[in-house]
Every structure is written in structure tokens, then in C-alpha cells.
């Protein structure tokens, strides 16, 4: 009997060893360890053994069982691992094939510039004020110290609808409207972005529709040096920390004194096409709010002073991105628009 059991063990282990898949292994399990298996059969002959031998045989039978069972388990783990590996091998993909990209659209470059400027000034405590694109002659001109017949009206030939109504030529009327709302009580601290319109033939550098952002601060003791300091922060944030600004005297009817503000060119004064070899790029018009403008909007010009500045996002975007034709902004060719995806 002992001989039988040992043979069984050898036989079973050999079969386990040669099992090729889980099914075969399971068949082996059933064949050797099942209730009708050969080990059980062998044990049925235990009755013929002497009482001394019985426990010995019993123990031996259990050893054989355990050995076969353990071999099956080992083999099973081995086969399972193999099966998984085969499965994974089948599932392998070519990782160099393109992924399913989520395609995002993006903001118009003008919006990007405008929002960047808005956020910059919001961080300095400004609010965003907006106003109508169709304006009255009063807010567009008169309230800004441009009475009828003023020669400076020529500077911005306008699209009139009626004698009293026109498409605003700048966003400055929003300043006048906002100041009126404050009823002579400062501080006022606003940024006014928006579309504006002028009688220009569309070409690479002119557009009858374009955008503008103006800023206005009115409070007691606002000075020209505050204007310079504010614009310096603005220029450094928008164009880069290494940029400088320079003020040149100029004229706007709604400010006195008035200045043009140049930002140093990225060529660092070496001279390039963008700055026309001057080292400076004209970016803003600015000045101290004209006392007439303050008074007309209900502010006491003896108590309050203020500064205002205005700039063209179209021009800034053209400088920033090297765009050579303003008409691109309004043609909406997606080959253009898609170039301004966020890169953050």
C-alpha cells in the first residue's frame, strides 16, 4: 500500500508538472484528490491493515494528498500568471498612435489682451465699467471738453447716425458716464474696455472697428507721478519686468497735461523694425483729467484731481504676437484664431 501511494504521488506530480492550462490542472485535481480519486481508493484497503499500520498509512496518505495539492496550487499560480501575461500581451497597444484629444477652442487674441489688462488693474483695485457703443454727441465729445466745431474732432472722424448720435470713437464716454454716477464723490477707479469705431478705410494698419481700454482714477491728491508709477507697473507686468516707460508731452482735449507713453522695445534699444529703430514703442495716451471734464461730470476740480489713460488692445496684440495685419482680428480665420491657445 505504501508502495501504491508513493507511486500515485509520483504519477500525480508528473501530471501536474506537465499540465498546460488551468483546465487540465483542474482535471488533475479532480482525478487525484476527488472523492472517487485513486488515493481514496487506496485508503479503502486500510481495513486489511494491522492496527499499528493504519495510522502510519493514514499519515502517509495525507502526506501524498498534501504534496499533490501543494504542487497543484503552485502550478495553478504559475498558470494563472501565464494566462494574465498572455492576455496583457494581446491587449498591447501602439502607444505612438495619436490619443483621443479633447479639442478646446480658445479666446480671441484681443480678448486675451483685454482680460490680461483687466486682471492686472483689478489687482490694483480697479473695477470694470462698460457703456454703450452708440453714444450721444454729448458724452462722446462735449463732456470730454470737445465742443462742437473743436478742431480735435477731426482727429477722430466719426460714424454719425443722427446729428446727436454716433458710434463712439473712443471708450472715454464711459468715463464721463461713470463719473456722473459717482455724483461728485471720489474715489473713482475704473477700467473701460470696449469696441470703438472710426471712419477709416480698412487696411493693414487701420480698421473702422477696433478696441480700446481706458483707465480713470479720480480722488483727492492724484498726481501725474501717480500716473507714471501706475503705468510703469502696468508696462512691466504686461510686457516684462525689464521694460521701461517714457512720457512725451502730447495733446488730448480731455486731459491737461497730456502725454504719450512709450514702452521700451524688446530690442533693448538696439533698434529693430518694430520700434522703427528708436528703441521705444508708442503704446498709450494719458494725462491729468482736464478740470472742465471733472466739472462737467459733477466733480469739484479744486478738490479732486485725476488721471486717465487709453490704449489700443489691437495694437498691443499686434506688438505682443507680431501680427502684421489688423484685419486678421475681424476675419475670424480659424487658422489665425487657433494660434492663440493658452500655454499655461
Amino acid at each position: 500500500m505504501e508502495q501504491q501511494l508513493k507511486e500515485l504521488q509520483t504519477e500525480a506530480l508528473a501530471k501536474v508538472e506537465s499540465a498546460e492550462d488551468l483546465k487540465q490542472l483542474n482535471d488533475i485535481r479532480v482525478a487525484y484528490l476527488g472523492k472517487k480519486g485513486p488515493i481514496t481508493e487506496v485508503l479503502k484497503g486500510m481495513g486489511k491493515l494491522s492496527p499499528e499500520e493504519r495510522p502510519k498509512m493514514g499519515a502517509l496518505a495525507n502526506e501524498v494528498r498534501a504534496a499533490v495539492s501543494s504542487a497543484i496550487e503552485t502550478k495553478q499560480a504559475e498558470l494563472e500568471q501565464k494566462a494574465i501575461e498572455e492576455q496583457l500581451a494581446k491587449e498591447t497597444v501602439d502607444v505612438t498612435l495619436p490619443g483621443r484629444q479633447v479639442e478646446m477652442g480658445n479666446a480671441h487674441p484681443l480678448t486675451k489682451v483685454i482680460e490680461e489688462i483687466e486682471d492686472l488693474f483689478i489687482a490694483m483695485g480697479y473695477s470694470i465699467a462698460e457703456g454703450p457703443e452708440v453714444e450721444t454727441d454729448y458724452y462722446n465729445f462735449e463732456a470730454l471738453n470737445l465742443p462742437k466745431g473743436h478742431p480735435a474732432r477731426d482727429m477722430q472722424d466719426s460714424f454719425y447716425i443722427t446729428e446727436e448720435l454716433l458710434l463712439r470713437t473712443h471708450t472715454s464716454p464711459v468715463q464721463a458716464r461713470t463719473m456722473e454716477k459717482y455724483k461728485g464723490q471720489g474715489p473713482v477707479k475704473i477700467i473701460c474696455p470696449g469696441k470703438v469705431y472710426r471712419r477709416d478705410n480698412d487696411d493693414a494698419t487701420h480698421s473702422h472697428q477696433f478696441t480700446q481700454i481706458e483707465g480713470l482714477v479720480v480722488d483727492e491728491n492724484i498726481s501725474m507721478s501717480d500716473l507714471k508709477g501706475t503705468l510703469e507697473v502696468f508696462a512691466k507686468k504686461l510686457f516684462g519686468e525689464d521694460r521701461e516707460i517714457r512720457l512725451r508731452p502730447s495733446f488730448f482735449p480731455f486731459t491737461e497735461p497730456s502725454v504719450e507713453v512709450d514702452v521700451s522695445c524688446m530690442c533693448k534699444g538696439e533698434g529693430c523694425r518694430i520700434c522703427k529703430h528708436t528703441g521705444w514703442i508708442e503704446v498709450l495716451g494719458a494725462g491729468m483729467v482736464h478740470p472742465n471734464v471733472l466739472e462737467m461730470a459733477g466733480f469739484d476740480s479744486k478738490k479732486y484731481t485725476g488721471f486717465a489713460f487709453g490704449m489700443g488692445p489691437d495694437r498691443i496684440a499686434m506688438l505682443k504676437y507680431g501680427i502684421d495685419d489688423i484685419r486678421h482680428f475681424y476675419t475670424d480665420d480659424v487658422r489665425f484664431l487657433r494660434q492663440f491657445a493658452e500655454h499655461e
Binding site: S127, V233, L247
Partner: peptide
Amino acid sequence: YDNLPTTVPEGATYPGGLTDYQ
């Protein structure tokens, strides 16, 4: 204007920001 100092407006700090609409 090169001789003009640079400062920033003093006085009360104002809460800026966007309106709900914006």
C-alpha cells in the same frame, strides 16, 4: 517728464473686481 518721480495713488484701498454680469 523723465524727471517726474513714480508713485502709485495713495488713499483708501478700493475693492475692485468684476460685476456678477462680467
